[in-house]
Structure formats: C-alpha cells, structure tokens
Nucleic acid binder design. Structure first.
Lengths: 212, 212
DNA sequence: GTCTATAGTCTGATAGAC
DNA sequence: GTCTATCAGACTATAGAC
C-alpha cells in the first residue's frame, strides 16, 4: 500500500507549489493554443522545463491538468457577471461589467482561449455547468436587466442576447488577438481602442428612448 | 514512372467527385471540432465512410485536406465585406453586411469554427492572408465607413473596431453555438433573435447625431 | 522527488494484393 | 480504385533506479 505517487494536497512544500504552478502555466499555454487533443505532454514538459514523467508525478493524467485549469478558470470567469448589482445605476453597472470583462480578456487571454477551445469542441467537459450554474446566473441577471428596461431606465433589448453581445465583443479581443493585430497593424493599442468603442456602442444601445 | 497515386485534377469521374466531397465534408466536421492537431485520419475515415488509405489516395496528406478546406472557406468568407457598396445607403449597406455574415454563421457554422480554430492556434497557415489581402480589404472598407461618418450620414465610430464588432457578434453564434443554446434553453431560435438584436444594436449605434 | 527506460497504444503514411 | 497489412514515429502513462 505504498501509495507514494500523488502529492499530498495539504502541506505542499515551496518547491511543490512552484512546480505545480510551472506545470499549470505551461499546460495553459499549450492547451489554449491547440485544444485538449492537440496538446501533448512533450510540449508541456518542454515549456515547463520539467521532465515528462515528472509532470505525471504532480498530476495523475493529462486530463487532470486540463480539469484543474478549467476549474480555476471558471471560478473567476463568472465573477464579473455575479457582481452586476441590481441596486446600482443600470448603465453604470452594465458598462462596468463590460470593462471588467474586457480587462479579463486583456490580462488573461490564454484563459479566454482555453475556454473558447472547450466550447468549440462542444463543451464535453463543462456542459453541465453551462446548462446549470451558468444558465441560472444568466437567467437571474437577465431578469434584472429586463426590470431596468421595464422601468424605463434603459432601452428595451433582448437581455440574453445583450449578454451574449458583451461576451462576444470582449472575448473576441483575446480569442482573435492575432487577427485583430494583423488587421490593425502596429502602432495600435487594441484594448484601449476597444474600451472606447464598446463604451460608445453600449451607451447608444441602452440610452432610454425619449418617449418615456 | 508509374505515378498512379494522385488523382488527375481534370476530368474527375462522378465517383471521384463524390468521394472527394465525402472526405472534405468529414474533414470539415473533425477539423472544425478538434483543430488541426487534434483531428485524426481515423476519425475522418470513420465519418466519411472510407478507409484510411483511401483518404490518402485522394489527398496526399492530412495537411492537404486542411489546406483545401481553408482555401475554399476563405474564398467565400470575405465576399460579404467585398459587397459593401460605397455608393449605397450607408446604414442599409452595413445592416445588409451584418445579416449576410449572420446567415453565413447559421448556414456554415462548421466553416466558422474551422476558421476560429485556425486563429486560436495563432493562424500559422493564414497569417500572410491576414496581414495582406484581409488587411487591405479592411482598410479599404474602413475608409468608406469613415467617409460616411465624415459626411454625417452615420455616427462617428472607429471603423476598424466597428468591423471587429460585426465579426465578433455574428461569428459568436456559430463558434459558441453550444453555449448559446445551453443558456437559452429550448424553445428559442437563436439566429432569428440575433437578427433582431443586431439590427437594433447597430441601428442605434450608427444613427447620426441630431447636431448635424 | 526526479530521472532514464520502456511498455503499450495511436498516429500519419506506405506497400502491395486484388 | 480500394482494400488489408504494416511501418516508423509520436503518444500517454508506468516501472524502477537513484
């Protein structure tokens, strides 16, 4: 019963934490670019600077690395939407949400691409979350937005598609980064320009109509 | 010199055309879901109903299948933007463009995901097209949009980011299809709702300000 | 804890019978 | 043209020395 392989969850040494982080960082790099099936342990080993068997000392399998990444990602991914305050000023709340999402794309583009890859592949590992936790959260916030519209504080929109629009527009700058930069050319700050553009776009969309 | 393997480009029989199409269809299915590296010839063979060696009778390599798909895709992918008419009515032209793009997402979602996969992977096979043909076309159409804005026919926007927004919003419904449907639940027609939503969004964004 | 060596499987591609 | 059989290399994962 010498079950010595898996590292103890508690009381990890400094080196263990450092190696775990190195592996997860390298795995994020490779998974986000090639997807789960396209990624190889050889690549992750090379990027992390560790040997291939050593990877499998810290994680029982390739799948386990991917799961670990997805879990930590999803934890923080929905925070901006959760923070949408029903008691706040409607337009301010929505614009804040948009900019928090855009900041996530700017600061964590690989995480965004990891998520995009998972969805493109049909979301085999997170379908439950999509139809469960995510749908519940979205339905709840959509109700908040609808209430704002009905009260005449913002224009009437389809709340679900408003949220889809925010996701699409903000994540695009991370997921299609190479295309954005290729088309813009040098001497551009995509995220700064996007921030202005999206503020303008949603301000005009949501301005309540004069016939209040 | 019995170079019998590659099928002659001209005068292909009916069966040859049918098999080629079956292979490309299967390859599109697999590549669009798993990306180039994640896709396997075994999968493509199974989906197409042909044997693995038979695949390689019609195409010299896995790479050749992928290239063939990308080329036919890119040919039609930019047509809607090319059709943007500088002499048309500005808002009508832009809304038509949006709906043509949305129709492409609805009718060719796998092609959209194939393109998304290629960009996510860093566009290794189409970087030249992005910085060349695509950038040229976008710069040209951005100038048209800027001229419309300067003439007061539509509101002032950042033309490049306006186009990015259109791409992001329309392609989102193909690329993130499973997420959209998971969140909406049944009894929804995502593309019909998206059509209305995007019309509203861009109509409000582009309405020229009163202070003409 | 980390390594070398390797087991066992899957991969893209080829050879050769029919 | 299409198949079975098969190659060499890459793949995930394990064994065992240190």
């Amino acid at each position: 019963m010498n079950d010595h392989h898996p590292p103890a969850k508690k009381r990890a040494t400094r080196i263990q934490r450092k190696n775990r982080q190195a592996i997860l960082g390298a795995a994020l790099e490779v998974f986000s670019q090639h997807g789960f099936r396209g990624a190889t342990l050889d690549q992750i080993a090379e990027v992390s600077g560790l040997s291939k068997p050593n990877l499998l000392y810290y994680f029982p399998s390739k799948e386990a690395m991917h799961t670990a990444l997805l879990n930590t990602l999803l934890d923080t991914w929905l925070d901006p939407l959760r923070a949408l305050d029903p008691d706040g000023e409607p337009l301010t709340e929505i614009l804040s949400y948009i900019h928090r999402k855009l900041d996530l794309s700017r600061d964590y583009p690989r995480e965004s691409r990891l998520f995009a890859n998972e969805i493109l592949q049909g979301a085999p590992r997170i379908m439950d979350l999509l139809t469960g936790e995510l749908k519940t959260l979205v339905d709840e916030k959509a109700a908040v937005i609808r209430a704002w519209s009905d009260a005449g504080k913002i224009a009437q929109t389809h709340p679900h598609h408003l949220l889809f629009s925010i996701w699409a527009l903000t994540q695009h700058y991370a997921d299609f980064d190479v295309q954005v930069r290729a088309v813009l050319g040098p001497d551009h700050d995509p995220y700064a320009e996007a921030g202005d553009h999206l503020t303008q776009l949603f301000t005009r969309l949501l301005a309540p109509s004069k016939q209040a």
